[in-house]
Amino acid sequence: MTKWVRACARDDVEAEDLIRFDHEDRTFAIYQSPEGAFFCTDGFCSHEQVHLAGGLVMDHIVECPGHNGQFDYRTGEAVRSPACVRPNTYPVRIDGEDVLIAVDFERPG
């Protein structure tokens, strides 16, 4: 059974922006797209241990503040080097004003 965890309130994340969310010993990045949809990825860049929360969201791309690697935060796809590896993405659900993420989700394959 999926374990949903409250990450933040909807208002905590501006449109076309992200925030950091720490849960137990893990860290995540929560995004709101320009269209108002919410997404979640691993917090750290897959290139090096730099948190994406300090990065820049442009449309559906997040740029890492460390070395400017870029990912599509909807799928995790790495779209600009030096980032080459896809970070994990996690299902997001909206419950009233709360943003919930499935922290134990493991994508098949």
Partner: peptide, 10 residues
């Protein structure tokens, strides 16, 4: 040089 420069920043 791109990757070398990434290391320079790290």
């Amino acid at each position: 040089w791109k990757y070398g420069h990434a290391r320079h920043h790290t």
